[in-house]
Write a protein that binds this DNA or RNA. Structure first.
Lengths: 120, 120
DNA sequence: ATATCATATGAACAGATGTTCAAATGAAAG
DNA sequence: CTTTCATTTGAACATCTGTTCATATGATAT
């Protein structure tokens, strides 16, 4: 009844009201979905993917990563900051240099999933 | 020798030359890493994540999705185009309406991985 | 202290991205 | 054919994002 009335009100946009309310109940809350998108957004940049891939192999300092990727040390530092904020990498200081490494194995798994999807 | 010379040439940026060349060999090619980033970039938007999540439950037409997400039908259509191009969703026509659904189970797995990472 | 080196940071700029609006398909019904 | 409805499309616009450049930390060595 409600839905039928709305359908006649002018917009006339609702085709399957029952389906809509059913799906609506099973949706995670807005915030969770936002956080999820935000997580993937971090992986959605070549430079950051490369940095993470490099750290697959070994912990490494900023200038080494910059050299490896043929990029400015500043650019790398900015991106490491993003990765740090998302808890995807961690770091330790040793004198003047700072060594970065993967925060945990989730990074490997997620990137692995992506690779699998591509290779098909 | 080579590396030492370069270190003294001026920039003085290379700290661990051996590590660099070792890691360099194990890196996937540029294009693969770019595609990988591109794939994740698709997941890195709230609207697209929501659309995918909705399609977890059932195939659905454009105006239903728009209604469900409280968004313009045009905005949804634009995003479905992106998802279509990335082969993440497929569609079938039935008269005037077009029904979209997930292309395969990889989408579920990848989003599942992201969720797992968040819930820790 | 001063110099040097590794890294971080802030402002600025160019390029990418998402939504909106208006208009165009494309299929069914009158 | 014309109308209606679901969807697509293109241009315009505002916002976001990544890199660069110049400068600031912060630690070591002289």
């Amino acid at each position: 009844m409600d839905e039928q009335e709305r359908m006649e009100q002018g917009t006339g946009e609702i085709l399957h009201p029952d389906l809509i309310s059913s799906v609506n109940q099973d949706m995670p809350d807005e915030e969770m979905l936002y956080d999820l998108a935000e997580l993937f957004r971090i992986f959605g940049d070549s430079t950051r993917i490369k940095i993470l891939y490099v750290l697959f192999e070994a912990e490494m300092c900023v200038c080494d990563i910059a050299e490896l990727l043929h990029m400015t040390q500043s650019a790398i530092s900015h991106q490491l900051r993003v990765l740090k904020q998302s808890k995807l990498v961690k770091f330790r200081r040793e004198g003047k240099t700072i060594y970065y490494s993967l925060a945990d194995d989730h990074v490997r798994t997620i990137i692995g999933m992506g690779m699998e999807h591509l290779c098909e």
